[in-house]
């Protein structure tokens, strides 16, 4: 069964002149971590709101876990099987960790000893046992995010939706956070859809949906997307050449020396060359620029490169 199936989904915010979302077709498999990747305004948050039943007056067909979310209603059945972590905190800061979890349990029909047992389980999973009586407003960003996750996992959802889940989490704790997510997929039989604008997080997903301006740009595993890109990326920095027009004129003279199909662009004071078998052009570049060459970097394409090539935009913009 498909985790998600969309057909001709569109949505326009009240008063807007352009649809925030316009997806012809998309289907996602269960049992995986799916990443929704795109810059701000790409439509990923709107898609997230549709899938988490926050927006109901969309146009088109959306099925989540085999349930049809009809426009204007029909989302009751699916809500019980969804866990949602929002971009903004949804914890009550005046209440303790365990008080927040008890209310969440009650909203999903859990009570009594079964609820207390499950609370202990999720506190154990997210290593929060010693924080159970602390008010959530006093927790650090990373801990609070873990409580959010524990809260959304409490009722054993089949699909967990996470909107920018590492917002406010220290970079060095992000990897640990993702290990926890990976464990959930392996041990709690849950599928994940995670929206993010961070490349290194997208690399950790099993499958990626790249979005831009409300539409689907590409879809596949990170490796698949990068190998489809086909080129290597070589970046060079040249002494005393840093403004855009100078870089572009150097780029123009350089392109004649490169194999056909290569692309040269100016980016952040660098020249960026997309070319097949990038290592082979490096000796030529070294001899061409000589001592003026400040740095020379070769790399396989990243998802950022894929995104840039597909949309002409950087993810961080």
């Amino acid at each position: 069964m498909d985790l998600i199936k969309l057909e001709n989904l569109s949505y326009m915010y009240a008063g807007a002149t352009r649809a925030a979302l316009n997806l012809e077709k998309l289907s996602l498999q269960s049992g995986l971590i799916h990443g929704l990747l795109g810059p701000n305004g790409s439509g990923k948050s709107t898609l997230f709101k549709v899938l988490s039943t926050q927006i109901v007056n969309f146009k088109g067909r959306v099925s989540v876990l085999g349930h049809d979310l009809m426009s204007g209603g029909g989302s009751e059945d699916v809500r019980a099987q969804l866990g949602v972590t929002f971009q903004n905190p949804s914890l009550d800061g005046i209440l303790s960790v365990v008080e927040n979890l008890r209310i969440q349990g009650a909203l999903y029909g859990l009570r009594g000893a079964a609820l207390e047992k499950r609370i202990d389980e999720v506190l154990e999973i997210f290593e929060l046992m010693d924080r159970r009586h602390e008010r959530t407003a006093t927790l650090s960003g990373g801990l609070a995010r873990r409580v959010e996750l524990a809260k959304s996992m409490l009722h054993r959802p089949r699909l967990l939706l996470l909107d920018e889940p590492t917002t406010g989490v220290d970079p060095h704790l992000r990897l640990r956070f993702w290990q926890v997510l990976r464990n959930l997929v392996e041990h709690e039989q849950v599928s994940l859809i995670v929206s993010t604008h961070l490349m290194d997080e997208a690399e950790l997903c099993d499958s990626i949906v790249i979005m831009n301006e409300g539409s689907l740009v590409d879809q596949g595993t990170p490796d698949m997307l990068k190998s489809r890109f086909g080129h290597d990326v070589v970046e060079i920095k040249i002494d005393e050449v840093s403004d855009r027009s100078e870089l572009e004129s150097v780029g123009k003279s350089l392109i004649t020396l490169l194999p056909s199909g290569a692309r040269v662009t100016a980016k952040d004071g660098h020249l960026r060359i997309e070319v097949t078998r990038g290592l082979t052009i490096m000796p030529m570049i070294e001899s061409h620029f000589g001592s003026k060459l400040l740095s020379l970097r070769w790399g396989k394409p990243t998802l950022e490169d894929v995104f840039l090539a597909k949309t002409g935009k950087s993810l961080q913009s």
Binding site: S52, T53, Q54, E76, R79, A80, L82, V84, F86, N88, P89, S90, L91, D92, Q104, L107, Y108, G109, K151
Partner: peptide, 14 residues
């Protein structure tokens, strides 16, 4: 409703 606790209540089956 938009940025806090009620977000969770609104997506719950209640």
């Amino acid at each position: 409703r938009d940025k806090g606790f009620l977000q969770g209540v609104l997506v719950s089956p209640q």
